[in-house]
Simulated assay, not measured.
Amino acid sequence: MYHAIAQDIIKAIVAGEYETKLPTEKALMTQFDASRTTIRRAIDVVFRHGLLRRVQGSGNFIVKQPQNSATVLNLSIGFDRAAMVAGGPLISKVVTFDRIKADEQLAKQGNIAIGDELYRVIRLRYLQDQLYDLEESYFPRAVVPYLSEDGVQHSIFAFLRDAYGIYGSTTENYVHQVRLNATRAKLVGQPVGDKTMCLDGINYLASGIVFNFSKTFFVYPDLELYYHTENIDLQD
């Protein structure tokens, strides 16, 4: 239940419904008809997404995005929510949607077994009519038994939450520069060999099972990265 509450709070923050800080825990308990423990767990999720700044004795304050937020990619909240902050949503154009079996390269990329059956989704995504990224995403069918043509046109993660109750627990991200091969260069309309920022991501369930892995090539001009971390004091 706390996952759903966290999603509602995140949507409200992205939509600008809270100007400076979250309502009190008591107010949120009333709003969502939930216990204090559930509300606190939901707030923890929102905090880990980099949307809150905790001030002891004062509450949970909204983290303000930079003024040039259209060019800031907030890895803590994901591409789709970052795009909403920047005036989105992202509009998808599906290039490829099919089922394949993982070869050696995909198995290594997604930390899965060779031969595992996958849904493959390749999409161009646009922010305010300008090309934002090229996304090559894979979903093991052992975890995601069904994806639809309509579902991949929009937020696939939202579809997985609604249809299967799938919530990501941990994500591994690796950001690096790559040169575009002929296929990718043609899709994004750039010269072969041009460098672009690429994000390799793997998403895990709480059980440690992979439910998604992807490569995303960003072509939106002047992108900057933002990432939220929580400092933890380690004591002997």
Rank of each mutant, 00 (worst) to 15 (best):
G88Q: 10
T71E: 14
K108Y: 06
I114A: 13
L73G: 01
F79A: 11
T71C: 09
N74D: 15
Y126A: 05
D103Q: 11
P89V: 10
F97Y: 12
V55S: 08
R123T: 04
A113G: 06
A102M: 09
E104S: 15
N111V: 11
L118C: 08
A86V: 02
I77L: 13
R81K: 09
V63G: 03
N111D: 15
V95D: 02
S76V: 02
N68E: 12
F97S: 04
F61C: 01
K93V: 11
G88H: 03
F61T: 00
L118R: 09
R123W: 01
P89T: 11
F79P: 00
D98N: 15
L75N: 05
K64C: 02
F79D: 11
Y126N: 03
K101F: 14
Y119P: 04
A86M: 01
Y119K: 05
I62W: 04
F79V: 12
A82G: 15
S92V: 02
L73M: 10
P66F: 14
K93D: 09
S69Y: 12
G115C: 08
A83H: 02
N74G: 08
G115E: 07
L75G: 03
I114E: 15
D80R: 08
R99G: 03
V121S: 00
I62Q: 06
I114V: 15
K108N: 09
I112E: 01
F97R: 05
M84C: 08
L51T: 09
R99S: 14
F97I: 06
S92T: 04
I91G: 00
V63M: 12
G88E: 09
E104V: 12
P66R: 15
A113W: 09
A86Q: 00
Q105D: 13
L118A: 08
F79M: 08
M84D: 08
T96Q: 15
V85K: 10
L90C: 04
S76T: 05
G59D: 09
R54A: 10
D116N: 12
F61A: 02
A82C: 13
L52E: 06
K101V: 13
R81N: 13
D103H: 06
A102P: 04
L124T: 12
A86N: 02
F79S: 09
G78A: 13
D116R: 07
N111K: 15
V94C: 06
F61M: 04
G87T: 07
